[in-house]
Design a protein around this nucleic acid. Structure first.
Lengths: 111, 111
DNA sequence: TGTCGTACTACGCCTGTCGTAGTAAATGTA
DNA sequence: TACATTTACTACGACAGGCGTAGTACGACA
């Protein structure tokens, strides 16, 4: 209970991350906090899941990384969404509508 | 496009199957046809996925199997949902609401 | 000086899905 | 009657994404 099964979310972690990168670049730790707060604490992404998603999506060309060297703070790896990433995100959103409709045919709340 | 990614559905195949077993026992081939028609052809479960779901769920005590020996037709393995299976199904339905709400915070349809 | 929060990387296991292949009985078609 | 198709599975092994565990290292704060 309480916890969301990772199988459900599987395949949508990437989508969540891309959503958060839509407006401006960000980095691991911040993304993870944003997912937590946007989901109202209902979903907390695991660190390893998050960073492996970054690696995968960079390889797929959906995001690109750069380092925040200049300023004083600790060194971070930022990620920026690419045009391909935006298109992928749009496709996933469309797919989500389909999927949701399909699954809801098999869900009952009256029992 | 067009096809629903299996990652999304992952974890809900079991739920769909239990939904279809709710009223009466059934067997592989029939379940697969029902999933296809109930989803309006949008989701077609793979045979291997289906049968491995049966095996898994029987091991977990969510369903139990029996053979249709008597009548003339071909021998089939029927599955019947158990009380545990009913409870599991209810939990998954509740979880679905949660999950849906979480994911929808990260979906846009205006872009 | 030590603890806590931040920001990662590496390694390897686990689970569910799926591709490929094969078997075999029942049913439909020529 | 011969053959193809549909029905109804089983076996095997690969793969991808998630995750547990562990470790590193820097900065802030007390």
């Amino acid at each position: 209970m309480s916890n969301i099964s990772s199988d459900v979310i599987r395949g949508y972690n990437d989508t969540m991350i891309l959503f958060l990168l839509w407006e401006q670049p960000s980095y691991g730790y911040e993304i993870s906090k944003q997912i937590k707060s946007l989901s109202e604490e209902k979903y907390i992404i695991k660190e390893t899941t998050l960073y492996s998603a970054f690696t995968r999506m960079e390889k797929n060309g959906y995001i690109e990384s750069f380092s925040s060297d200049e300023n004083g703070g600790k060194r971070r790896t930022y990620y920026r969404i690419t045009d391909e990433g935006r298109q992928y995100y749009r496709d996933k959103c469309a797919e989500w509508q389909l999927t949701k409709d399909v699954i809801e045919n098999f869900i009952r709340n009256d029992i």
